[in-house]
């Protein structure tokens, strides 16, 4: 696998792309209102909606198989400084994909990154983590506590 960015950027970039993929256009927009303005961008590709074939593994851990497709929207933009941003997000929200690509580009700019991480990515990540944690707590509440027959008598 060819890495186009140094490993440190690569990890951070993977994370913000994952967060943006799970945030609606409305959520991203509302966070951007509290952030420094994004540089204007030019569209290089899309936003366009297509399909990704989701794969599973037989038995959960064996050979891959094609489970079924999912809708995915992608977008590529370029900033005046030349930085290129990409987005691939599940679903058909073209606005989300374009915002995510613009943010991906801006976040690669060391001058913009700290403010955008603080104002946009961290709050979105926290909201997503809380949604997941709430599901985990509701699931935990349905965990069966077995009683032995002796204590039931």
């Amino acid at each position: 696998m060819a890495e186009t960015t140094p490993p440190s950027d690569f990890t951070a970039r993977r994370r913000w792309m994952a967060v943006l993929a799970r945030a609606s256009a409305a959520e991203i927009t509302s966070r951007l209102e509290r952030a420094p303005p994004l540089p204007a961008h030019a569209r290089l590709r899309g936003p366009e909606t297509g399909l990704v074939m989701a794969r599973g593994r037989q038995g959960g851990d064996g050979a891959p198989f094609n489970l079924g497709e999912m809708t995915v929207t992608r977008c590529t933009v370029r900033l005046p400084a030349g930085i290129v941003g990409h987005a691939y997000v599940a679903g058909r929200d073209t606005r989300q994909a374009e915002l995510a690509a613009a943010l991906d580009a801006a976040l690669q700019d060391p001058a913009l990154q700290p403010a955008l991480l603080t104002a946009v990515i961290e709050p979105l990540a926290a909201a997503q983590a809380e949604r997941a944690a709430r599901d985990a707590r509701r699931a935990a509440a349905t965990r069966v506590e077995f009683l032995t027959m002796a204590t039931m008598r």
């Binding site: 690569f10 993977r14 994952a18 799970r22 959960g60 999912m70 990409h86 691939y88 599940a90 679903g91």
Partner: peptide, 26 residues
């Protein structure tokens, strides 16, 4: 929910694009 990852050729590394809800039976 399971995360879905793809490796876009223009990036060359895996990114998460969202989650799928699935049911699995062994």
């Amino acid at each position: 929910e399971v995360a879905v990852e793809i490796v876009p050729p223009e990036l060359g590394f895996a990114i998460e694009i969202g989650d799928l809800t699935v049911t699995e039976c062994q």
